[in-house]
Amino acid sequence: MTEHAGGETDGLNVSPTGWALLGLLTSGEELSGYDIKKWINWAIRFFYSSPAYSQIYSELKRLERLGLVSSRVDAGVRSRRMYKITDAGQVAVERWINDDPVEPPTLKHNPMLRVMLGHLLKPGRLREVLTDHAAYAEQLHQAAATEVRWTTEQPAWAYARLALKWSEQYYAAERELALQMIKDLDAVEETFGENVTGGIQFPVREYWYELERRIAAESAQGDPGGDPAN
């Protein structure tokens, strides 16, 4: 299978979210956009960004134009459009998940960006940010743990349970890292205060260039444990 520029695979321009939606439809059942959003909020939100309803419906229409899903209007009590994967969609999503390269995760960690630029924060503000983040991580840890319990009785959810179990452990670790960082702040603030005179220069361009050269030399020597001061 070839992957083309712009996210095209075998001529199909499908976004990562589109592939996720196709994957959810492989159960064979018809699902509405609302059904899909509920499933995403139940499990996928722990490890993949949760699309808005508007994006879900936009992606479903796109997949239908590509012939990967079909739809019909269910004129019940609440008229709704139901989507079902086509044979072509089943073949495409199986090829994608088996043959396409698995991209490494992209981390955009806003609390850590605040930590990196901590010299700009008002006194006490970084503790608030990290405390809030620890609480957020604990909230998701507990939510994932609840979902793990409710997947146990359904054999068909065994793979979903694996992902949810990972999510439970991930957010527990995230919470502990935030709490440890709060404990480490005293020493950091003390060291930072002692070494700052006449304002701060961050980063110092010449220093980073020199550091880059040292790291390159260290890597060339195959000695990752070398003393960076030498």
Rank of each mutant, 00 (worst) to 15 (best):
residue 150 W to R: 06
residue 151 T to E: 01
residue 152 T to F: 10
residue 152 T to Q: 07
residue 153 E to K: 06
residue 153 E to F: 08
residue 154 Q to F: 12
residue 154 Q to M: 07
residue 155 P to Y: 02
residue 155 P to V: 01
residue 156 A to W: 10
residue 157 W to S: 06
residue 158 A to H: 09
residue 158 A to Y: 05
residue 158 A to S: 09
residue 158 A to M: 04
residue 159 Y to A: 06
residue 161 R to V: 00
residue 167 S to F: 06
residue 167 S to T: 02
residue 167 S to C: 06
residue 168 E to M: 10
residue 168 E to A: 12
residue 169 Q to D: 12
residue 173 A to M: 13
residue 173 A to R: 15
residue 173 A to F: 13
residue 174 E to W: 14
residue 175 R to T: 13
residue 175 R to C: 11
residue 175 R to W: 13
residue 177 L to Y: 14
residue 177 L to D: 15
residue 177 L to S: 13
residue 178 A to P: 09
residue 178 A to E: 11
residue 178 A to T: 15
residue 179 L to T: 14
residue 181 M to G: 04
residue 181 M to V: 05
residue 181 M to C: 09
residue 184 D to N: 12
residue 185 L to W: 05
residue 186 D to E: 10
residue 188 V to Q: 01
residue 190 E to W: 02
residue 192 F to K: 02
residue 194 E to Y: 04
residue 195 N to C: 02
residue 195 N to E: 05
residue 195 N to V: 00
residue 196 V to D: 04
residue 197 T to P: 01
residue 198 G to P: 07
residue 198 G to R: 08
residue 198 G to F: 10
residue 199 G to F: 05
residue 199 G to S: 05
residue 200 I to M: 13
residue 200 I to C: 10
residue 200 I to S: 12
residue 202 F to Q: 05
residue 203 P to I: 04
residue 204 V to S: 11
residue 205 R to W: 07
residue 206 E to P: 01
residue 206 E to A: 12
residue 208 W to H: 10
residue 209 Y to H: 11
residue 209 Y to K: 15
residue 210 E to L: 14
residue 210 E to K: 15
residue 210 E to P: 02
